[in-house]
Nucleic acid binder design. Structure first.
Lengths: 227, 227
DNA sequence: CCGCTTCTCGTCGGCGTGAGGCTATCGGGT
DNA sequence: ACCCGATAGCCTCACGCCGACGAGAAGCGG
């Protein structure tokens, strides 16, 4: 068995929507290289771990998302990165993973959710991994029901619309959006409760339905690409 | 830098359309493990190679596709596979790559293009990698112009339609298909030549245009899923 | 009670697509 | 020479989805 040996790591692109902005979880590095730079959370694959195991373990460790996030959230493999010079310590292959979570409080010190538009100069090639993750998330909202992964267990149509508007950075007509999502079978399950206390007519509360695909897809115009 | 060390390999899902069937390039293993089993072509990542370099090198080595294939074809990363027991020799992470090529002659002895429906029992976890590659290819035909990667440099609308029909295993109305693809700007560039010798009216020849995305997408009904 | 806000339903027109008719132009059989 | 089948390509029609927009429903605050 020829070929060089690699250390294999998993780096997470953990996205959420906070205050109508798409945010990514970053950690401040405490060691070299790139000491005190922002980086994606991640870690090395341990013995007897598959890649998804490592990703799930790191996700729980970094967010405490075992209770809330893992149920409503989403975790999928993104891509592999293995440029020979991507890590000055030696050959490291990193598998990017994409996680979508509802808005949760900032985790431990040294980690924070920051708006993706403000993020530059991450450690290693994490700018690239982040860009790939954001693009994947934007694309998946088109033809899947994954936008609900950004929402808490019960949410309104407006909550869901704000997710689309934050991720795509566009404005969507509330009336057409409502017709679209409520007429897709299995996307939204109505609950018997309504929200009170806000301004305007109290909205209906929904839960995620069993549908995963969106037929026909929700089309977006070419986005003002940036980040 | 903790964590185990991995050998990193690249395995190729090389697809083509031959005689109206979606076919995959397989090689017969000459060594253990899985000696004399069919497997996806692949090899280990060498020093100073990035993953895409390895994939391109292996693709040329296995198909001689430097001339024809690399120009018209397509090569993209698929996913990473690293189950702890996927290779009995030790920990091996394999990056799957998907290649789409026009129909080319069978390469060296011990390698052949076989219809994907007939393929079972590949070495390692290559059945899974193949299934992922086929599903990716099917999905990408919906919203990209990649179907043309299966065609020679000049092709007819019917050639292109037969690609869709072979990959999706459906029948498509020739007249609506023609309207769709010829009305998409930048998909097909007409040439001044026509084909003679066949039955019926001589068709127009086209080349690939600069467009890569298909807006709106070419929708397919839920496929009779099966490899 | 009135105005404002937000949610929800309805209407209208444009566009893309499925279904299908029709013509153009070849090869081959009689 | 003529007809016929086959393929390519154009056109029409109906239906459904979607964008633009009007209007009612149902809460809150003055």
């Amino acid at each position: 068995m020829r070929g060089n040996l690699f250390a294999v790591a998993v780096d997470l692109v953990v996205l959420t929507v906070r205050r109508d902005q798409l945010c990514v979880l970053l950690v401040r590095r405490g060691e070299r290289p790139f000491e005190s730079h922002w980086a994606l959370p991640g870690g090395f694959v341990q013995a007897d771990e598959d890649l998804g195991d490592t990703a799930a373990r790191e996700l729980v460790a970094q967010t405490g998302a075992a209770t809330q996030g893992a149920v409503e959230g989403h975790l999928e493999q993104l891509a592999g990165y293995a440029a020979p010079d991507r890590d000055p310590r030696g050959r490291v292959l990193s598998m990017g993973y994409l996680a979508l979570l509802p808005d949760i409080p900032d985790p431990e010190a040294g980690a924070a959710f920051l708006p993706v538009e403000d993020v530059y100069g991450l450690a290693f090639d994490h700018d690239r991994i982040l860009a790939d993750g954001v693009e994947r998330a934007r694309a998946k909202l088109e033809y899947t029901t994954l936008a609900a992964a950004f929402c808490p267990p019960e949410f309104t149509v407006t909550d869901l619309r704000r997710v689309y508007e934050a991720v795509w950075r566009v404005e969507i007509d509330p009336r057409n959006f409502q017709r679209k999502v409520t007429s897709t079978p299995g996307f939204l399950l109505p609950t018997s409760t309504r929200v009170t206390g806000g301004r305007g007519r109290p909205p209906q509360l929904f839960r995620r339905g069993p549908a995963t695909a969106l037929h026909p897809p929700m089309l977006r115009e070419p986005v003002p690409a940036h980040v």
